[in-house]
Computed example of a mutant assay.
Amino acid sequence: MKHPRSTLSPWTALSRRTVLGLGAGLGALALGAMSVATPTPAAAQSAYPSRPVTLVVPFPAGGSTDLVARLVASRMTGVLGQQIVVENRGGAGGNLGSAAVARAEPDGYTILMGTVATHALNPALQKKMPYDAVKDFAPISLLALIPNVLVVSNDFPAKNVKELIELLKAKPGEYSYASSGNGTPLHLSGELFKSMAGVDMVHVPYKGAGPALVDVIAGHVPIMFDNLPPSLEQIRGGKLRGLAVTTKERAPSIPDLPTIAETLPGYETYSWNAFFAPAGTPKAVIDKLNAASLAALKDPEVSAKLADLSATVVGSTPEELATHVKDELAKWAPVVAASGARID
């Protein structure tokens, strides 16, 4: 029995085989091209950064936080090979800019200059926070500590911390202290002092540290807790009497001024600045940012300018910063509760 002859010509069969072969070859080429064009996550991280990085400062320009941010960012630009662009996004006591970074893409191209306010005080002061200070951020590095200072007007009778405590205990509620505002780090420095020393003095909040300092110099309010940099010039110029700095150790910029802890053991407050990224940022990216920030802090010009601000350079690991934030939250929550301060 003869088999039926195929209706396809040899040329038609060849053409079909050729097309199928070409299709398979082109498919392989396409897959190969895709594997070359689409980098793996590891490759993308190793190329980081490939464009400018935005550093959000959640306070207006010109303050100590902004100055530290711009100083460190300028040196990190050279280390990373991409510009670090500082963006001031103030509002809500630092919450506005911080919340924006918490919601940003976790790719390392948006980072935050966090402070004691954004990551320790605001969570204790506000019932409804727009972010979680621990869960919504990946720590990068604790950069620097900036001391606060206890100052009094020149005609105030107490000449040191011991005399101040004795005076306040003898006349509870008779004296007042100024701060930069309700719930600010300077206000809570005063509340911590009251709690630890067992004294009573009346809090007078101002709309900023500048107006408060003017009134203390004039003697309208006798006592104030201030950031050291703006008060330092007034102390040196004889317009204010500095009683003590609030850090554990004396400030190098004014080493003759004692610490509060020398009279009141365990007392310590300061402003601090640290870099954070959104939670979920890859570890390789965090490590690069950490290394760049540490390199910037070691630059002689940067360290000298930070010293001019009375800042103590830290330069921590991400893990050390994470521990620092948790410790600060635990420290300030009871102080805020005892003060009765709320911002809602």
Rank of each mutant, 00 (worst) to 15 (best):
R103E: 15
G108S: 09
M76R: 05
T184E: 12
S253Y: 06
A291E: 12
E191W: 13
M224Q: 15
V79L: 10
D287G: 05
Q82R: 10
P4E: 14
A33H: 13
L14H: 10
S98W: 11
I254V: 06
G183I: 07
L125T: 02
P282G: 03
A292G: 11
D132Y: 07
G97L: 09
S316T: 11
E262P: 05
P185L: 03
T259D: 00
T38P: 00
R51L: 06
L213S: 06
G94R: 06
D256Q: 09
P185W: 01
V336G: 01
A61P: 03
Y267G: 12
D136T: 06
S271G: 15
R236H: 12
D66F: 03
P205C: 07
S15K: 12
S141L: 08
V152D: 01
T317H: 03
G94F: 02
E301P: 05
A218W: 09
E319P: 12
R89F: 10
G90K: 14
P10V: 10
S310F: 08
A30W: 13
G32A: 15
S179N: 09
T38I: 15
A104T: 13
Y48G: 00
E166C: 00
G219F: 14
L55M: 05
K248I: 06
F275Q: 08
R16N: 08
A337S: 10
E87R: 15
L186F: 04
K283P: 04
A311L: 01
G198N: 08
L306M: 01
T259M: 00
L14N: 13
N227L: 15
G242E: 00
V313G: 09
V57K: 07
A284Q: 10
Y175M: 04
E87C: 07
M129I: 05
M201S: 11
